[in-house]
Nucleic acid binder design. Structure first.
Lengths: 288, 288
DNA sequence: GTTCCGCATGAATCGATAG
DNA sequence: ACTATCGATTCATGCGGAA
């Protein structure tokens, strides 16, 4: 097992995982290639074969995950022929037959989604983050993701655009005012199952980079320091970088050599930034 | 048909709809009783029988809906035994077999969701609003739900740069001047598929009232004035009130006499408010 | 050092045109 | 007839350079 810790491994993730022992990983967080996308990079899994393609992967994850571990799957179905594809729904049902518990569906509500205009559809600004478990009693450290109420209110007010103001006029004033009053007494609150994050804008040289905050949030929620986080479709390495920054062990797998190299490079870059922070006497926490 | 227009009908909605003619309704928007919920009011449909219970209803809706019409289903699966139930996923798959197109899944992101704290779960702050159609080409009036543009636009459009000119020229040889004019005058943008609305605070004497803005938004998006909106589980009458306020015809059905009375009462109340507004020389639009 | 402003870009989708 | 490619459309964010 030790040979996988804090490594990026190039290979087919189902085959790589097959060599790993049972019950050895605390969290799997990944964003696999979506159906029929990225034809030039991952080979383009078609929607009607997606489930059969993914099940061997989820089967290996089920085996190597600890009994108290969690599997977070970030995914969204494409539009095909004017209709939402059903492969994600079918995948959930099949994974349950495989032995998984479908514990929860978190929503990533994207602040800045892709632009576009169509006659029969609005812009898609959300994705699914499906939570699967082996067992009803799994590890969850809710206090690690509590939101300081002060900064919440501050950023909320700072970002209050004209849009927000006008949208807010419609709501019931008395009820909301009462709620705010309640919140003022607390220093931190628990979040909900909706994550409201911007998409990553900077160039990652990878076609599907999710924001670091997304894996980071789940890593804090479902693991403690020195535990192990696996991403079988590590891509540009975002989740590995997040795990490392948070003092967790990472294991990254990708079938594309180029992406493995990119992950290594991003890991080095983040390590370099950490060192610079130490030079200036900052903690990495403050720097982020 | 005329006997149903602007009426609240007490009865089993599948039976009531069975008497209605084909292709007579422009929009169906409803929030049916969720599985195993509201045991004391709707008799408590259990999760494992939910699909078989709902399919006759969706079958009748498929028949009475116009070919260009839309069916919006507001629903969220319950947690049963620590796991999300799968009846909504199964329902979508079965409704497709029935002939429906699953066009889109809108998310209602609740601003102020129900409070609570559990050891293995955060508060649930979103619900599905599933869009189904009979036909790929359905009626959609996107301009009716445009929202104010973000405040970023003010500074962004203050002075257009050279690159803006170049970018647009490369994509479109002919009509650049027209484009600039469009952007400069633009004060509203199209929304996304996430609705960020507060939950209803006021007491509706109904166990599952959704905010009026939710049906209101879909009514504006999918119908024009004098068209017909049906809610087969009308409950406290929210969607009927919304339709009436927007100058649409409503048809409300509920199996519970008490809820039919409540709907009638809420419709009267909204009519009364409208009259009061006229007395003060306000339009109903301004009052809302 | 701080704020401001310009700019590229991001898991997109549809309809028309071409092969 | 059916698939593949291409252009047009569009919004908000974080970054880097400048004031």
């Amino acid at each position: 097992m030790q040979e996988y810790i804090n490594k990026i491994i190039c290979g087919n993730c189902a085959e790589v995982m097959a060599k790993m022992p049972d019950n050895c990983v605390d969290l799997v967080v990944t964003s696999p290639p979506y159906a029929d996308n990225r034809k030039n990079t991952y080979g383009g899994v078609s929607p009607d074969r997606y489930v059969e393609w993914f099940l061997p992967v989820s089967g290996e994850i089920l085996r190597i995950l600890k009994n108290t571990g969690t599997f977070i799957l970030n995914i969204k179905e494409k539009v095909v022929g004017g209709e939402r594809s059903c492969y994600v729904l079918e995948l959930i049902l099949e994974m349950r037959k495989q032995g998984w518990l479908w514990t929860e569906e978190f929503i990533w509500h994207k602040k800045n989604c892709f632009p576009g205009k169509w006659s029969n559809r609005f812009r898609d600004s959300w994705e699914r983050c499906l939570q699967f478990n082996k067992n009803k009693s799994f590890a969850m450290y809710q206090d690690a993701v509590k939101v300081p109420i002060g900064s919440w209110a501050k950023s909320r007010l700072k970002n209050l655009s004209d849009t927000d103001l006008i949208r807010d006029e419609t709501k019931n004033n008395s009820g909301f005012g009462k709620k705010v009053a309640n919140w003022l007494n607390k220093e931190t609150v628990y979040p909900t199952n909706v994550l409201y994050l911007p998409t990553e804008c900077s160039n990652k040289n990878h076609s599907a980079a999710f924001p670091e905050e997304l894996p980071s949030w789940f890593i804090k929620l479902f693991t403690r320091e020195n535990e192990t986080v696996l991403d079988p479709f590590v891509g540009s390495g975002t989740s590995a970088v997040a795990a490392k920054k948070l003092g967790r062990n990472y294991i990254g797998v990708d079938i594309i050599r180029e992406y493995c190299d990119l992950s290594e490079s991003n890991l080095k870059k983040s390590e370099h930034e950490r060192e610079q922070c130490h030079q200036y006497g900052l903690t990495t926490q403050e720097a982020n």
